[in-house]
């Protein structure tokens, strides 16, 4: 029998995978993809809670509205973030995190 706990554990595992990727990888594009994965993992937890918190016999649509806003903000964030990565590539000719040391002085 599939419970809310199963969905929460899958969501947590996906979030942890993304977190491990952000810490371990050094290609900025892959770090960015892992960030998207973490956002989606949080969405899965929200939708799970929405389905199992019934309001008048229907899922709680407040949570699903929040997911809607998260997806919108994530889309805007991806566009701006990728533009920053392209601008960075123009000056450094690299997308590795080691190449960006300007603030170290």
């Amino acid at each position: 029998m599939i419970t809310l706990g199963h969905y929460l554990v899958v969501s947590g595992m996906l979030f942890a995978l993304g977190l491990a990727g952000v810490i371990a990888r050094r290609n900025i594009l892959i770090i960015y993809m892992c960030l998207e994965m973490m956002l989606s993992a949080a969405n899965l937890a929200l939708v799970g809670f929405s389905r199992f918190h019934l309001v008048n016999g229907l899922p709680d649509y407040t949570a699903q509205s929040l997911v809607f806003f998260t997806i919108t903000v994530a889309a805007a964030e991806v566009a701006v973030g990728l533009a920053i990565i392209v601008a960075l590539f123009r000056t450094k000719q690299s997308v590795e995190t080691e190449a960006i040391t300007k603030l170290q002085g």
């Binding site: 419970t3 309001v55 229907l58």
Partner: peptide
Amino acid sequence: LAEKSLQNTPLALVEAASKAE
């Protein structure tokens, strides 16, 4: 809370028709 399953929290669509906002 995590023990709720799809079987023991079914959607009540017909009842919601008269209750939902």
